[in-house]
């Protein structure tokens, strides 16, 4: 195995982070692995995409269990569910809905980019693909926000 190739079992972007830590410069790069995701100073678009994917992914895992917890209120009957709906239809919670869609779009579209590149499709267009998907995602997010908040009136 060559020195630059990723180690077996290690995922996208980790080698870039480890390589970055060895470089001299003003940016602190000695922190443990996942903490480095948040340090995007002076990094490439690839690192930004990797960090966004990990952070939105963790957020979505948290939401998966929150969603199961919320749906469990249905087991306690109509009264409990109506109580939840009263809270869930406030502007604050509708804002959380839009935040959820933001996470889904970033993670889904960036994941699509990774799958396309990793499978050998468009290997030399990663940066263009990333920004194209993010612009598309922004348009869908604006539409969703209008739909979610528009339903309030």
């Amino acid at each position: 195995m060559s020195e630059r190739s990723p180690r077996q079992g290690r995922d996208a972007g980790v080698d870039e982070i480890l390589e970055g830590r060895r470089e001299p410069g003003p940016v602190a790069r000695k922190l443990p692995g996942p903490v480095a995701w948040f340090d995007i100073r002076g990094r490439s678009t690839g690192h930004l995409a990797f960090s966004l994917n990990r952070i939105t992914g963790l957020g979505l895992v948290f939401y998966l269990y929150l969603h199961l917890l919320v749906l469990s209120t249905l087991l306690r009957g109509e009264g409990s569910w109506n109580g939840f709906l009263e809270i869930a239809t406030t502007p604050l919670f509708l804002g959380f809905d839009v935040l959820l869609v933001f996470g889904l779009l970033v993670h889904g579209l960036n994941g699509t980019r990774l799958a396309l590149v990793g499978s050998g499709f468009v290997p030399n267009r990663q940066k263009a693909l990333f920004w194209s998907f993010m612009i598309f995602g922004a348009i869908v997010l604006v539409y969703t926000a209008i739909h979610v908040f528009g339903s309030e009136g």
Partner: peptide, 29 residues
């Protein structure tokens, strides 16, 4: 993008990577 494809995408041969991609694509739908 500054990094090489192997670094930016992970090893396509990795079984976990493959299953992450398969389930990810299914999840889109």
């Amino acid at each position: 993008m500054a990094t090489g494809p192997a670094i930016a995408t992970g090893s396509p041969r990795s079984r976990s990577w493959r299953w992450t991609a398969i389930t990810g694509v299914s999840l889109l739908a």
